[in-house]
Each structure stands twice: as C-alpha cells, then as structure tokens.
C-alpha cells in the first residue's frame, strides 16, 4: 500500500499524461495485489482486468485522440483551496476512523449481522462454493442487474457521445451501424 501511495503521488506530480495513464494502471495492479492479500480474490481479478486493462487502454486511446502533455499552470490559489478541501475531508475521515473496529477484528459487528448466513447457509441455500458468486448473483442479484445496466448505459452512452453522427467525413467508413439496415437515413 505504501507503493500505491508512491504511485499516487507520482500521478499527481507527473505531467506526461502517457506516463500518468500507465501509472494509473500500475496503481490498479498494485491494488489488485493488495486485494489478493486481503482475501478478495474475485475483486482482485476484476480490478486487474478492468483497472489495469480496460481503463488503461481507454486512457491511451483518449490520449492518442487528444494530447500527451499536461500544461503547466493551475493558479496557486486553486491548489491551496483544493488542498484545504482535501485536508478537511481527510481530517473528517481520520476522525471517523477512531471508533472503527480494529483491522481484522473478528468480533466487529460487520462480521456478525448479515454475513454469517451467507457463510453458513449459502452452501445449502444456493449451492455454490464461491460465496461471493452466491451473494452477487443470488442474494444481491438485483445489485448485479443494476451493474449490468450501468455498463450497458456506459456502452450506449459512449455510442451516443462519440457515435457516428459527428464525423461526416468518415460516414462511408461505416462504423457504428452506418451500413446496416434500419435508421441509416442520415
């Protein structure tokens, strides 16, 4: 996690956006490693695939379309206010930690209210060895439905934002659905 801190700071400092994107990927990757250590294998798997993979690819793609260098600047006053806001937020968070259960604490409420049923009964009720999958796809499957729709929204949203209509030049190149049957009237 200290490594993540280092990477995070590097992201804040470095102005070459290309490097920043790569660092962001590395950040996710280290995060994924931390997840494994913390027993969250599924999450780690996903974070590695998404954070390190998809996000980075997307960022690089964006950079290819825009520019690689971040401009110098950003008034001093702006960063001072930003720093203040961040400091206050952080302080509230740290304040909040004081009454938190200790790391790894077995008797914390968090592990004893809802979760025991998942751990103890999901085998009989759902029949899946992977509890995460059971919870994800059955107990809380509605969340997952929502999640699927989020990604669906994002995909169609990107279509709507960057879709064909903007680029008249390349209309004949028939990207998103330019060549297929319906709605092609332009």
């Amino acid at each position: 996690m200290l490594m993540m801190g280092a990477v995070g700071l590097a992201i804040a400092r470095i102005r070459d956006l290309f490097a920043v994107s790569m660092l962001s990927g590395i950040f996710s990757l280290i995060g994924a490693a931390a997840y494994v250590v913390l027993d969250a294998v599924d999450v780690a798997f996903t974070e590695a695939a998404v954070g390190a993979g998809i996000s980075t690819v997307l960022m690089l793609g964006t950079l290819a379309l825009t520019t690689r260098k971040e401009k110098l600047g950003g008034g001093k006053s702006k960063s001072t206010t930003a720093f203040l806001v961040v400091a206050v937020t952080g302080a509230v968070l740290v304040y909040g930690t004081f009454d938190m259960p200790r790391y790894g604490d077995k008797i914390a409420a968090i592990h004893h209210h809802v979760v025991p049923r998942y751990i103890e009964k999901s085998g009989e009720e759902v029949g899946m060895p992977n509890i995460v999958t059971s919870v994800l796809a059955s107990y809380r499957s509605f969340d997952t439905l929502g999640e699927v729709f989020v990604i669906f929204t994002a995909a169609t949203g990107v279509l709507a934002i960057l879709g064909r209509a903007r680029r008249r030049r390349e209309d004949e190149e028939a990207d998103e659905g330019g060549s297929d049957t319906k709605g092609a009237a332009s």
């Binding site: 996903t46 998404v50 969340d143 999640e147």
Partner: peptide, 21 residues
C-alpha cells in the same frame, strides 16, 4: 467477509463505466 467484495465488484464496474463516459 464476502459482502464488501460483492459490493466492490459492482463498484468497480460502475467506476469503469464512468471512466469510459
């Protein structure tokens, strides 16, 4: 505890969706 894992799986997806947009 598996529940936060589940939540975060969902949240990661939300995150990447936001990033893409």
């Amino acid at each position: 505890n598996p529940l936060p894992h589940v939540l975060i799986l969902t949240a990661i997806v939300v995150g990447v969706a936001t990033t893409a947009l």
